[in-house]
Design a binder for these strands. Structure first.
Lengths: 140, 140
DNA sequence: TTTAAAGAGGATATATTTATCCCTTTTGCA
DNA sequence: TGCAAAAGGGATAAATATATCCTCTTTAAA
């Protein structure tokens, strides 16, 4: 479904979000990597992309690390997906046909249509903060 | 979602299925490739896998090609997916966490759960023949 | 003001996926 | 019986994704 990079990115942002709920703590890349079991140098590349896209914030130098601002917490999963994948992979045709629509459907279009709508809703309606809250039982 | 190989495989099998509804015609690899716009040598490799898995039938030599028997028509999309991907990618955790269940859910588990069930239903309940029929308006 | 911790980022290595090439085997047909 | 059409399959190439390495810059603290 997603590339490893995107999975790592989502898990990383949600980790930072949940931690920011506890206390204002910077997380250094190596700690995130070991906590989420992600190769550290690869994670660093992903974090660089997330920082450039203003999905994650960072501070350099001793005592630095990664954290989320209020603005960062309002980002959606869709923002993360597009940042890493370049496109919204969840919006593509299941069979990879360039033109797949109600008018020119692929064989699975009819079945996948509603499923896709549900997925779209989750990844674009919920903010990183919503999801982090939920992980801590604030909502659900 | 799926690899190119799997997308190609599904489209190929459904093409063969729909053609087998018209007349008993062998399709040669190069014709399938140009009709579906798939690199021919790559498609040949995929067809080899499908033949070995008894999802597609073939006859060698002049006048040969690929076709579906009655038994082939009863295969499901799940059979094709597992043949090419090795596993059912639609059954995996969205975030790639090895243990993702109702007891130990990933942050998206709750939302993805029902979606996954719908997808599972489509790919395992419907046979290649069902889908081909539908493409030709026999059912829907 | 020196030092060590931390991110930034370019260059490189490895693995996997995708795609191609070439030769062999099979088989219908002239 | 020989030729050409077709799949089978091993070896290789190219592209992409994944992962690592090394150096630079920034910055807090000793």
């Amino acid at each position: 479904m997603f590339s490893n990079a995107t999975k790592y990115a989502i898990r990383t942002v949600l980790l930072l979000a949940s931690k920011s709920k506890i206390k204002n703590k910077n997380y250094i890349a190596s700690d995130i990597a070991s906590e989420l079991d992600i190769p550290q140098p690869f994670l660093s590349k992903i974090l660089q992309k997330l920082v450039r896209a203003k999905i994650v914030s960072s501070s350099k130098g001793r005592g630095g690390g990664f954290y989320l601002t209020k603005a960062n917490l309002n980002k959606s999963l869709l923002d993360i997906i597009i940042c890493i994948e370049g496109v919204n992979v969840l919006n593509e045709c299941l069979l990879g046909q360039p033109t797949c629509s109600d008018e020119h459907p692929c064989p699975l279009h009819h079945y996948y249509k509603d499923v896709k709508k549900d997925l779209q809703k989750v990844i674009s309606d919920f903010s990183v903060e919503n999801l982090a809250d939920e992980m801590f039982g604030v909502i659900g």
